[in-house]
Amino acid sequence: MSLLGWIGSVTPASPDQGQPPCPDLVLDHNLSERFECRFSTVRVEKSPAMMLQGMEGSVLGVWVAHGEGRFTFRNEQVRSSLERKLCFPIKYVDDDGEPTTTYPMNPNGSASGVAGVCSQNGRHLAMMPHPERCVQLWQWPWMPSDWANKYTVSPWLRIFQNAYTWSIERCV
């Protein structure tokens, strides 16, 4: 998505160089230098991401499974610009629910705890955690004890429902 210019911003190469655009945001190797597969905690932030509508403020467990999941920015101006535009809809958090860069709570070492990036219009969402791996409650290694009697599916199902609803509303 970054290479296509759908998330982050893309700085085009000058035509005389004959080079493809150079992305301002890439996914780089985890700082741990290994594949990470663990159940981490993230917080859903205020953002235009249509898939995360109605989830703002949620602090949820989610599976991560990647070796190259560290969102890396060309420079601090790119990172701060995306932050101001609310394009970081998901962040790894510590036990107090605050964004963290501390390993293993942030399994890849992304700056500002970034676990996902969205486009300014909210149509595109790139994230490294895998909510599709924990849609059913039995896929969770831990959850609050009252969830068993309260829910039949995980709160992560909402992102797929949001995508379906958004698509259906635009097909009519």
Rank of each mutant, 00 (worst) to 15 (best):
P104Q: 04
Q77G: 07
A163P: 10
V44Q: 10
E45V: 07
V42F: 11
S47L: 10
P131K: 05
S2A: 13
G97V: 01
S47A: 09
S40D: 08
T102G: 07
A126H: 10
V114I: 14
R34Q: 13
I159Y: 13
L52C: 05
Q17F: 08
P48W: 09
G54D: 03
P155Q: 04
L125D: 06
C87L: 05
G54V: 04
N30L: 05
S47V: 07
T11P: 00
H130K: 12
N121K: 12
W142L: 06
N106Q: 06
S40E: 07
F35G: 09
E98Q: 15
V78P: 11
L125I: 06
R84P: 07
Q139T: 03
W138A: 05
P20H: 00
C37D: 01
L86D: 10
I7K: 09
K150L: 02
T11M: 00
P129H: 07
P141A: 02
T101L: 09
R74T: 00
P48C: 02
V44I: 15
P15L: 05
S81D: 11
E132V: 04
S154Q: 06
V42Y: 14
G116Q: 06
T11V: 07
K46I: 07
D16R: 12
G8K: 01
F35E: 03
G18A: 04
C87R: 14
V78F: 05
V26F: 02
H29D: 02
P107R: 04
S167G: 09
G18Q: 08
R133Y: 08
H66M: 00
L4Y: 15
I168Q: 13
L157V: 09
Q19F: 13
P131S: 04
K91S: 06
C22P: 02
Q77R: 15
V59C: 14
N149S: 14
S81T: 15
V135N: 06
E33S: 15
F35N: 10
A126Q: 11
W142D: 04
G109C: 02
S119R: 08
C134L: 04
P104Y: 04
F73P: 01
S110Y: 04
M51D: 03
H66D: 00
V64H: 10
D94C: 06
S112H: 13
G67P: 08
V172S: 13
P23D: 00
V153H: 14
P155M: 01
S2I: 02
P99Y: 08
E169P: 09
R43D: 00
A163F: 14
K85H: 14
Q53M: 10
E169Y: 12
G5Y: 01
R123I: 00
Y92M: 02
D28I: 01
F39H: 12
T72I: 01
E169N: 13
F71H: 04
L3G: 11
G57Q: 04
H29M: 06
P15T: 00
P144H: 14
V59W: 10
R84L: 11
R43L: 01
M1I: 13
R158H: 12
E33Q: 15
H130S: 02
T72K: 09
E98A: 13
P99K: 10
